[in-house]
Computed example of a mutant assay.
Amino acid sequence: MSLFPLLLQPAELAGRLNEPRLLILDVGKEAIYQQAHLPGAIFLDYRRLQKGVPPAPGLLPEAEAIAQLFSDIGLQADTHVVAYDDEGGTRAARLLWLLDAAGHQHYSWLNGGIHAWLDEDLPIETEAVYAIPSQVTAAQLDLKPQVDLEYLLAHYQDENLVIWDARTAEEFAGSRVMAARGGHIPGAVNYDWSLLIDPARNNRLLPLETIQKQLSALGIDSSKTVITHCQTHHRSSFSWLAGKILGFKQIFGYPGAWSEWGNNPDTPVAVGKD
C-alpha cells in the first residue's frame, strides 16, 4: 500500500518526513541540490533514467542498468518514492515513469517541486545525503512492454487511440525541426506539456478540472488509449504523469519519441497545425 497519493502536496509531505519507507529523490540540477534540497533527499543524475544512445536517446536503459540504479538509491519492494525537480516536474516524472515501467508502484510527485516547497517556507538542507544501497537484480524487475515504433506504425490510426504530442506548437507544425524531418505523427493532437503547470503558482499543477476540460476539448480523455511523446520522452513523461493523476487507465509513453520517428525515413509525417 502506498504511503501517499500520486499528487503529493508539500505540506502533506513536510509533516511525514520520518516515514521509514519514504525515499525522496531530487532529480533536478546538482548545483541547485547543493544550494537547497528537501530534508533527507538524495540526488539522482537524470541521465541515468534513459538509454542515451542516438537516434532514440529516450529509450529505457538496459535492465541491468535499471537494476543498478535501483540498488544505488536503496530501493526496496515497499519503498515509497517521492520525486521532485527544479524545472516543472519533467525530470521527476521521467523517474516515476521508469519506476512504473520496471514494475515499482509506490511513488508520488511533489506538486511544484523545490519551488513550491520553498514558497511554503518548508525546511531545507544543504548537506548531501547518500543512500544505503540495496540489492536489486535485473531478474527482479517486472519490466512492462513499451510502446515502440512497430506498435505505433500499426496502430496510430486506430479510432480508439489518441497520440498526445507534448512538444511545442512549433515542433508539432514542423517550423522547428529537431530531427531529420520536422512535423508530427499524422492524427496526433498537440498539447504542450508546459500548459499543465502554473508558473505563477511555483510550477504547481493546474486545477485538475481545468486540465481535464482542456484535454477533453482536444479528444484526449480516459475513454481512449492515450500515447504521449515529445522529442525524447522527457517532457512527455509529465503529460503521462498528468494523465495518471487524472485517472487515465490506458495512458502510455512512447520513449522512442520524435527522435526515433522523425529520424526514420519510412515513417509518415504531417506538417502544419493539424
Rank of each mutant, 00 (worst) to 15 (best):
238 F>Q: 05
62 E>L: 13
150 E>A: 14
76 Q>F: 10
198 D>W: 11
36 A>D: 02
194 S>W: 00
186 P>Y: 12
116 A>D: 10
184 H>T: 04
141 L>C: 06
171 E>D: 05
168 T>W: 03
232 T>L: 14
271 V>A: 03
69 L>C: 05
229 H>P: 07
127 E>F: 06
132 I>Y: 03
113 G>D: 01
179 A>P: 09
25 L>R: 09
188 A>H: 09
48 R>N: 08
92 A>H: 08
165 D>E: 06
67 A>R: 11
85 D>V: 05
209 E>W: 06
220 I>C: 10
197 I>S: 04
18 N>G: 02
176 R>K: 13
43 F>S: 11
40 G>R: 04
271 V>E: 13
234 H>Y: 14
127 E>R: 12
221 D>N: 15
218 L>F: 07
80 H>Q: 12
98 L>M: 14
237 S>P: 09
119 D>H: 15
209 E>Y: 00
18 N>S: 13
269 V>Q: 10
113 G>K: 03
187 G>S: 04
150 E>S: 14
208 L>R: 12
60 L>N: 12
88 G>N: 11
10 P>M: 02
229 H>N: 11
7 L>R: 05
6 L>K: 04
144 K>V: 00
75 L>T: 02
238 F>R: 02
189 V>L: 08
86 D>M: 04
254 Y>G: 06
184 H>Q: 01
47 R>H: 15
36 A>P: 02
71 S>G: 10
158 D>K: 09
181 R>Q: 15
240 W>G: 08
111 N>Q: 07
13 L>Y: 10
35 Q>S: 13
63 A>L: 15
86 D>C: 11
174 G>E: 05
228 T>D: 05
159 E>G: 01
86 D>L: 13
100 D>T: 02
95 L>W: 09
43 F>V: 00
195 L>E: 11
151 Y>R: 03
137 T>F: 10
108 S>N: 12
117 W>P: 08
